[in-house]
Design a protein around this nucleic acid. Structure first.
Lengths: 229, 229
DNA sequence: TAGGCATACATTGTATACGATTTAAAACTT
DNA sequence: AAGTTTTAAATCGTATACAATGTATGCCTA
């Protein structure tokens, strides 16, 4: 899928956002090289701007920059993958609880729309987009909980989760368990803080279970890479 | 012994680290302007490098960059301050627990040395340095817990906490409650996971209590600032 | 003299040029 | 022909030059 932009100059943030979405929807896979000149051509900006966005993404853990070698979409190790989900397990249940205590009817309606958009994307077989929306759902919970810091942090963790899913997803058929999201929305509507917290806890555990985080070294590696040195 | 005469050019990371330490020890206060040329002169590097480090610090939440106006040491709002400590309260007790289960005798010895260094700094009345060490203690717990992701995250939160302390510290006399740290080390030595978790929880609560995070708008504001716009 | 306007200065933002390093390719040797 | 050295190309890192923006100064007018 081509990444197009308006004729006027793009900002570093816009480029970073587009790259993030491409990663999130698996149009860009872990390990993919991000050559500066190539991105310059696509967005019609100087390398200065491109480098800003790449560094930005590096800080967020989505990109790995090797000195004098270039920028690559990050390839989380098994340990990093576990750590991401451990961190999420520490944070998100509390966010679900806080969200349940604060959610307005508008918030609930928003989440319902959000879930519908996800379902529509799945019906259209836009798997990547569905995955992105599914992750964004979690970020929205933090937004409803009115916790900006964790919202930003969670956005990073969710984006990294997309990388992890790309690397360690077990089966390609069953995608997301939307029933958890539905239950969460219901709990929010009912102001059921305990319920929301528990559902979130279980939901993250479910996600983790669907990943293959055993000690197999690095997952799918190209033969070329494996033999390189 | 020969001394390196070659004026080794500082890297962006080194500059960022020095600025971070200056912030951590309160040699740089919230709101301080960080002019690029000035930093260039100090470290004898081009603006390219300085801008890299400033952007890096912005991503970490220590610096705020206003377009066309420049970089300033961040000034956390009351809400942001609360969020930092809420996030720490979600994360750190779990780290204390994990650390208690993993701590080796070497780890315990290291923490004891660390506490002694903090005490020495206090005795020498190097308040800023003591504060920095006190914060780093928490980061070391995450390191012992062998959780790299949270260790990095916590380093950011601790650095931001230094800003918060600079802004919202209640009384200038009583500094840190070293008894909590001592208790924590003992719990780690005893492999007392529950105890470590509880002590950490209480310790963070104590810290929070010593801050003035009531709804007074932004804490210490000058009349001049208040009328500025 | 106070306020508004215009100009000059200071600082930041972006693009480009140049040097350093890596990667790929070619030529050479054994 | 395989391996090694040499050469060239591609790519990244840093410094610098220039443009855009913001800030301060002085002048003019009422």
């Amino acid at each position: 899928m081509t990444i197009k932009l308006k004729s006027k100059t793009a900002t570093a943030d816009e480029i970073a956002l587009q790259l993030t979405e491409a990663i999130h929807t698996h149009r860009l896979n872990p390990g993919a090289k991000l050559r500066e000149d190539e991105i310059c051509d696509i967005f019609q900006v100087s390398r200065t701007i491109v480098r800003q966005s790449l560094h930005s993404l590096q800080h967020k853990g989505l990109v790995t920059i090797l000195r004098n070698k270039g920028a690559f979409v990050a390839k989380p190790t098994l340990k990093e993958a576990r750590e991401v989900f451990e961190a999420r397990s520490l944070i998100e249940p509390a966010m679900a609880r806080a969200a349940a205590l604060r959610a307005t009817p508008e918030d609930v309606a928003f989440l319902e729309d959000h879930m519908k958009a996800e379902k529509d994307a799945l019906d259209r077989e836009e798997v990547g987009e569905a995955l992105r929306l599914s992750g964004d759902f979690h970020v929205q919970i933090a937004r409803i909980a009115d916790h900006n810091l964790i919202e930003a942090l969670l956005a990073q963790l969710v984006a990294r989760s997309a990388l992890i899913i790309a690397l360690y997803w077990r089966r390609r058929n069953a995608l997301s368990d939307s029933s958890s999201h539905l239950g969460l929305v219901n709990a929010l509507r009912d102001r059921d803080a305990d319920g929301a917290e528990e559902i979130m806890k279980g939901h993250l555990l479910d996600l983790l279970m669907q990943l293959d985080l055993r000690d197999s070294p690095t997952g799918p590696v190209s033969l070329k890479d494996a033999l390189k040195k």
